[in-house]
């Protein structure tokens, strides 16, 4: 086994570029998944099954099929329909959409966890439906699902390397490019592997601490 520290040094500038793209994709993907997930969760509480049933089926489908194939679908099929995005935008949409079907379940658990008395109190006070949601239910529901949403941010982080397959130069993309140019595979791949652990492990510790404080 040979380990070349010079290769590590030479790779580092590319690593920082890649890290920036990874974090950018992660941030945008998180925002999309949080927003869309809430939309799905609210639609699933619609009074008519003509809304609930299609939303439930569509999200189940997205959740049970591989993100990689969905990514290819968006990347190759949308241009055929004359909708073109940049590779990074496509990747962010794919990740956001895929994970929104997970965050939706988190929101649902959060909404169902709000005590029935809160609903009854809102009804007794004569609050309109919109006020009941925005002022009573959602603030309590979102508060208790923050740690669970955080877990999905970490899961999303670990899925950002997939964007490499559609030519986005995030961390793994940069590592692969460097490896192919210099024919040194060990160092770049190990560096980004370690980087992922260094980001995700403290993040999960942080979430555990947050969970103890926020949930009750």
């Amino acid at each position: 086994m040979t380990w070349d520290w010079n290769a590590v040094g030479a790779f580092m500038p590319h690593f920082w570029d890649g890290l920036l793209v990874t974090l950018e994709a992660l941030a945008l993907g998180s925002v999309i998944s949080f927003a869309l997930g809430l939309v799905w969760a609210l639609l699933m509480r619609a009074p008519t099954r003509w809304v609930r049933w299609p939303v439930g089926a569509a999200t189940e489908f997205v959740r049970d099929t591989p993100l990689l194939v969905q990514l290819f679908f968006l990347f190759y099929v949308l241009p055929e329909w004359n909708i073109t995005f940049s590779a990074l935008t496509t990747g962010v949409i794919a990740i956001g959409l895929h994970y929104s079907t997970y965050t939706m379940q988190v929101y649902r658990a959060g909404i169902e966890g709000v005590p029935a008395g809160q609903w009854e109190a809102a009804t007794a006070l004569g609050l309109p439906a919109r006020r009941t949601w925005t002022a009573v239910i959602l603030p309590q529901a979102v508060r208790r699902v923050v740690p669970a949403l955080g877990n999905y941010v970490i899961a999303m982080l670990k899925d950002t390397p997939l964007l490499m397959t559609v030519t986005v130069l995030e961390m793994l993309g940069e590592a692969r490019l460097y490896s192919q140019q210099h024919f040194q595979f060990t160092e770049p791949l190990t560096v980004i592997g370690v980087a992922f652990i260094l980001i995700s492990y403290p993040a999960s510790l942080l979430l555990r601490a947050l969970e103890r404080r926020l949930v009750r």
Binding site: A109, E112, G113, W119, V145, P147, A148
Partner: peptide, 12 residues
Amino acid sequence: AGAGATAGGSAS
């Protein structure tokens, strides 16, 4: 509305 006082926020 208000159905299900069971599931807490303990998803995943």
